[in-house]
Structures are given as C-alpha cells and as structure tokens.
Simulated assay, not measured.
Amino acid sequence: MKAVRLHRYGENPKIEEAAEPNLIGPWDVIVDVGAAGLCRTDLHIIEGQWDPIQHPHLPYTLGHENAGWIREIGSAVHNVKPGDTVIMHPLTSCGLCPACRVGQDSHCENASFPGINANGGMAQQLLTNARAVVRLDAGLQPKDVAALADAGLTAYHAVRKAADVLFPGTHAVVVGAGGLGHIGIQALAAITSATITVVDPSEAALELAAKLGAHHTVLSTTDDDVAKKVLEITDGGAHVLFDFVGEHGAELLAPRLLRNRGSHYVIGYGGAVNIPTIEIISREINVIGNLVGTYNDLVELMTLTAQGKVTLHTAVYPLDAALDAIADLTAGRIIGRGILIP
C-alpha cells in the first residue's frame, strides 16, 4: 500500500510503498483510511521534538487524525463490523490500567499512538483496536471529520474541562483561530454561555472566527496593543484563556490577558510558559495542560458535528501531494485543517 513514512528527523517524509497491516490480537481492527488529517504535531514529529517522549522506531508512517471504513476485525470485536464508517480515537488504549478505568484514555499506561509512536493513517490502511473506533452518523464522511480525531478532540477536551465556569457573563479568550482554534470557537459557542474574543494575526482567520461564533475579534499586532484591546473588551481580562498556539510568543502574552483568578489553558505547544511564582500567587492564576481528549469527548464531539454545530474547514490534498500539504502548513497557507485522501 502507499504510505507517508518518516525516515530521518529534520528531513521530509517519503511517499512510498509499505506493507499492509495484519490482525495480531483479538481486539485489533484494520481500517481502510478515507482521510487523514495533517497537524502541526506532524511538523514537530518531523523536527524530532517527540522522539525523547515517544521513541518511535524509524521509519514509520505518519498520521494520527484518521477516519475511514472498517476492513477487518479481530475475533473479540463486536462494537463494529466490516463496512462501518468510523473515526479513530488517536490512542489504542488497554482498558485495564487505572487511567482507562476512570475514562482517561489519553493517559493509558499501555497505549500505542498511531502516527506518533506506531504506524499511522497517512496510508491506505491503518491498524487500530476496538476501543479506539467511534461509529459515525450516516450523514458524516471521513474527509469531513478526520482532523476532529485529534485537533477537534483536543480543542473540545479543553473547552469541556472549562465549561462549568464559563457561565453567562464570563469571558473566554481564544488565542489562535487556525486548525485547532476554529474548532475550539465552535465548541465554546455550542456548550458554553461565555462571551468569546478571538486573537489572531490573520484577518482571514478572524473573519472565519466571527462566522463561527466569536463575539469579538482582535488582530494580533504588538503585545501591548493586543493586551490593551482584550482587557477593554473583557472588562479586566479573560476568565479562561485558550492558547491554541503555545509558541512564537503567544505563551508569554497569555498571562497578560487574564484577570485575577483566571485560567490559562495550554493547548498548542513548542514554547515555554514563564510566569514569576509571585505573580501566580498574588493573582491566583492557573496554568492548565491539555492532552488530546477522552473517548467520550470524541463521542460528544461527533454528536455536535452530526447536529451541524461543529464543522471542519479543510484544504484537501491527495495522498500523493502530502509533501505539498506539509509545505503549505509550514508556510501558514492552510486555513483550517489540511486533509490527505488516499
């Protein structure tokens, strides 16, 4: 089968022939990939940032945002059947460790992470397991939802965690209205009553944000200018700030946009949060990390998607054009999410 495989860090992956996956265990599932999302994490993987954490054996196939159709199932699988349309939770979890027992799939002690530390879905077929597959509503197609498997799930997970404190009269500030942020904006509009302010350096991204539910938009210029405008709009700062960038200075600006006792949700990554401890104490602000999301988060997100409350804005490429898509993402030419179609 054709696959996008990484051979060396710091170099572009190669589009080449790879062996088709085989069922190994009774809970295994093989999926004919209908679409695979392209994520900034893929750029970080190519750079080698994930090597110290996940230690994948090179070469391997990229792609951790995947949807398609069930091709083959193991002997113990009963929740899906061949032909079903599915989206995959990014991790193949075990179901037995303490994290799995409380529904925290992304912290499974025995998980594999296709596309991160195992062969992923930028290919014609993908090996996953029964705990990872979510059947899709009849009206949903893989190409329309694939990137929700990680980008959407991660954004929704953060919003879901904060939803209880985003009641009427509160202010949510979203930094970054790109691939993750444009989904986070929709999730905020769908499940919270907060007033939503979006900060981004792209006028096109801000126009999209306004259409998706943002009440206010702020063009990112200088940090001082952004801080002044956001503090005016929010009457003192965000109750919750969602940083979907996490690098290039966004992570340093974020604390300036919070009100006292506000929470900085870190979703994007690549930089470093640097807040003096005296400021954390005196302002009683919180810094909260967010890793992917739970299986139930993905089920809820698919429900919102089927209801038309969350839509994915995409740029579609054939699998053969994966390197073009990577170049476009690196250069910031993609609005929304890049999608690869085998």
Rank of each mutant, 00 (worst) to 15 (best):
Y9M: 03
E11C: 15
N12H: 10
N12A: 15
A18G: 07
L23V: 07
G25K: 12
W27Y: 14
T41G: 07
I45M: 15
I45K: 10
W69R: 15
H78L: 11
D84G: 00
V86D: 00
M88T: 15
T92D: 11
C94D: 05
D105R: 14
H107C: 15
C108T: 04
N110D: 08
S112T: 15
I116D: 05
G120Y: 00
G120N: 01
G121A: 07
V134E: 02
A138D: 12
G139K: 10
G139A: 10
G139Y: 07
P142F: 08
A155E: 01
K161V: 08
V165C: 12
F167H: 14
G169Q: 01
T170S: 11
A177E: 10
I185P: 05
A190L: 01
T192S: 04
V198F: 03
V198H: 04
D200T: 11
A204L: 13
L206N: 03
L208P: 10
A209K: 14
L212G: 09
A214M: 04
T222H: 02
D223E: 10
D224S: 15
V226T: 09
V230Q: 06
E232D: 13
E232Q: 14
G236W: 01
F242Q: 09
D243R: 10
E251D: 07
L253I: 05
P255M: 07
P255I: 07
P255F: 09
R256T: 11
H264N: 14
I267A: 07
G270R: 04
T277Y: 14
S282Q: 12
I285E: 08
N286A: 15
I288Q: 09
D297P: 03
D297G: 05
E300M: 09
T303Y: 10
T311S: 14
L312H: 00
L312T: 02
A322V: 06
D324Y: 10
I326V: 11
R333H: 12
I334G: 11
I335R: 15
G338R: 10
G338I: 08
